[in-house]
Computed example of a mutant assay.
Amino acid sequence: MKFRPCIDIHQGKVKQIVGSTLQPDASKVVENFVAAQGPGYFAAMYREDGLTGGHIVMLGGGNEEAAAEALRAYPGGLQIGGGINAGNAANYLELGASHVIVTSAIFRDGQLHMDELLKLVAEAGKERLVIDLSCKEKDGRYYVVTNQWRTFSDVEVNAANIVELESYCSEFLIHAVDVEGKREGVQERLAEQLAAWTSIPTTYAGGARSLADLERFRAITGGRLDITIGSALDIFGGQLPYRDVIAYCKKGG
């Protein structure tokens, strides 16, 4: 189990928000934290701490230059997502991203568009493509959500779909949107299912707030999933020491 750091960028600033409130009207977005430092500061810190496989997420438009700042600070060390498509994927890889993360470009109008996925594989290469399966629960099942996590697709996060999509990417990133940013604990059933279904590196995001949560997450997943933590960390205004998380994950729990 690795700790995967994050840099979420909204309106050009590093922020932690309640994911389910993300929408075009920025005044209605619930912010947990707004950093005084720029994206490059956090990227450089992650580089110095030897953390790999972390991700930058551009939450809406107008964040491209801020994201480029982070990529310059840690070339080859961070993945990037948010508005990635076949037309710009190669550019972000050239700017220094290790991988590109894709959601909305392939999940449009409530469906998976295989033609767009194949274009992205052609542009980025399977080995540098991460599919974001961020999801919400509906009727006891989890479905991929797009359009800033506001729109349900008809793509269920289940064993069969996981197996199919693994053929086109090297990793998954999965936000448990119902708990993301709320510091209410890990969505255990989803985490347990993902650990059983996935055979490629998979990062879970959503709800972790303490070392006890990390211990529980490791127990229910058998250490097979990686984890990212945002709002709960002290570097983002929370109570959980960033250094303690690094130490815990490095010693294997």
Rank of each mutant, 00 (worst) to 15 (best):
G54P: 02
L112I: 13
G53H: 03
C135V: 09
A90R: 12
L51K: 04
A70H: 01
L133S: 07
R128I: 13
S167R: 15
L118V: 12
N88K: 09
V102L: 09
E166Q: 14
C135G: 10
N88A: 12
I84N: 03
V145N: 07
L173T: 01
E156K: 13
R108L: 07
H175V: 04
I80Y: 05
N85D: 15
A86N: 06
V130G: 01
L133C: 12
A66K: 03
G96L: 12
Q79W: 00
E137K: 15
N63A: 09
A86I: 05
D132L: 03
G62Y: 03
N158F: 11
F42L: 02
N158P: 05
F152E: 05
A105C: 09
E48C: 04
E65V: 10
M58G: 00
K126V: 14
N161Q: 11
H175P: 04
D115G: 07
V102S: 05
E48H: 10
F152S: 05
P39L: 10
G54H: 00
L59Y: 00
R108C: 08
K136G: 01
L78W: 00
G181F: 01
D132T: 03
R128M: 10
D49K: 15
A67W: 02
G87L: 10
V177R: 04
G62Q: 06
E166R: 09
V144G: 01
A43K: 01
G81F: 04
L173M: 08
N63W: 04
M114T: 14
G83Q: 05
M58R: 01
G83L: 01
G62E: 11
L78N: 02
E171W: 08
Y142E: 07
V163R: 15
E65W: 07
G60E: 03
P75T: 12
A66N: 05
L71S: 01
V157R: 06
E94T: 12
D109F: 11
M45K: 11
I84P: 01
N161G: 06
E94W: 04
G61F: 08
V100Y: 00
I80W: 00
V121A: 10
Q148T: 08
L93G: 11
